[in-house]
Design a binder for these strands. Sequence first.
RNA 1: GGGAGCGUAGCUCAAUUGGUUAGAGCACUGGACUGUCGAUCCAGAGGUUGCGGGUUCGAUCCCCGUCGCUCUCGCCA
Length: 597
Amino acid sequence: MKKRTHSCGALRKDHAGQTVTLAGWVNNYRDHGGVIFIDLRDRDGITQFVFNPEEKEAHELASKLRLEDVAQITGNVIERGVDDKGKSLVNKKLATGEVEVVATGLEILNKAETPPFVPNDAHKVSEEKRLQYRFIDLRQPRMQEILKTRHRVTKIMRDHYDSEGFYEIETPFLCKSTPEGARDFLVPSRLQPGSFYALPQSPQLFKQILMVSGMEKYFQIVRCFRDEDPRADRQAEFTQLDVEMSFVEVEDIITTHESLMRKIWKTVLDVDVPEIPRMAYDDAINNYGSDRPDLRFDMQLVDVTELASKTDFKVFTGAIEKGGIVKAIRVPGGAKLTRKQTDALAVWVKDFGAGGLPITKVVDGNVSTGIAKFIEPIGNKLVTLMGAEDGDLICFGVDAKPATVHRVLGELRVKLAHDLELIKEGDWKWVWIVDFPLVEYREEEGRFFSTHHPFTAPNDEDIDKLETDPGAIKSKAYDLVLNGSELGGGSIRVHDMNMQKRVFKMLGIDEEEAVEKFGFLLNALKFGAPPHGGIAFGLDRIVMHLCNTTNIRDVIAFPKTQTGADLMLDAPSPVEDAQLKELSIRKNLTTEKIIKE
RNA sequence: GGGAGCGUAGCUCAAUUGGUUAGAGCACUGGACUGUCGAUCCAGAGGUUGCGGGUUCGAUCCCCGUCGCUCUCGCCA
């Protein structure tokens, strides 16, 4: 095999006259009987080769080339001229289209079997086939571009933290199962029969320990595992950018990471990230119905409880009597939705706990259709309050539980914005959500649960409420939200053991349980823990935004399907009984039976 | 665990109300062709209609079950 002199995307007019050797995959071939054209592709581009019959040996070999064969071709670069009729032979679709290489030698490095699909067609092939033949799928320029972007992003991250004095430190994959949080992936211990490791859901405790160890600034680009059902933007196995810093307050973390985002967006997309605004959690919920508001469009939630209470509409008054609220969103141009479409929305919102979806349209400055006849008396005032115009649609969220109203309208405004195409392409709306509640009360369980995690520090002015009014405590937690998706989040941690004990007590975790679950952290806090805090970002999500995809599998080289399968490996798979025996594991017979049948 | 959609040639799809031998494009094989760039033209090969069962004179089509893929609710501190 000769040495490559150029990539398939490199040659330009200036190279004319040079003898070059390129290697790559056969992207296409056009055999005219006499002259043969071969388009050779590598990750850099495509170059056209011409085989003339005069080069007998090469020509004969070239006639055997088929799609996706791997070949190395040597020849002379010439500028493309004009054909007999004076028409230019330049191919404007190719970066290398002003030249071609007249082949003098060809070596077929590897014949390919007829592929199930070719990279050019991968975008129209089912995802199932793409995942099964991922090695071919990844040959398409789009996928190569994504993985290149992913590489560039992690490179920027490493450079950023390095320049700011961070150490990249690895933490174990074989960890300890913790009862709270997501379901753990378990790994049986051979040396300790009956015991299991858990794969980390995140390196949370390790990074705090590293602060106690005096590492001061830590980061890691690390795989995390959560055994929960996947979604379009969620995989059981995903990558976090994990960060922790000592002697810092909220501002330090925010500043450091705004700067990072600025570098990434500027380098990859040439987009400027402005100073990112902050929004209190309560405001996000009240005005957008979500703790990750999409600010690319308006449609804010407006509290219309007072107006609604003056109607005779039982749906409204009934909910209000039970302590509920009524909120509404104004959907610009929403009046064009058909009855069928709005009925479908009413069904759709039920998934989020709504009983239904009262709507009305705005015509001649007043309400019309839908529930108009019930709310006629407040029609004008409502239209004014909502700032609605003719042609708008007003959707109501009503429930005895305010949280349900917020959830329903929060989801609805996002759906409508997409359906009605109210989102400007290429718009970036960033926001930090701050002042999260430290805990939320879960009625089913009858106790408080951490909003973030149990190590999050309460706001200084709220510390007194730990024993009296936990639900009212705000915390030093923050999420970075981009276009309605949570890119990452973190908090300043509790670094004082007595404070940590008070938090555990408030959460109903007694001393014994605390020691059992988090003993090593409590122990570490005793021996000189500095004030510290950190943040973690979803690397996959960041790359998804940069590559303009909503499918997390697009940004992972070897992703899994919705049932956790790797279609290329055919994993997971049964194992030999001997392997299980060694691990002191026995299959559940019922399960085995189901698998066999 | 629930809801929705999809599954037909190697790939992407079609097939009338349930009715003849399940078709087309690309890919593949053979042939023709010296300027194409989605080459063109001629010919050919290629099917367990995901799998199992049922209804029917007859099933790609209807019914039940099952498997796979996607979206989604639950879940994801």
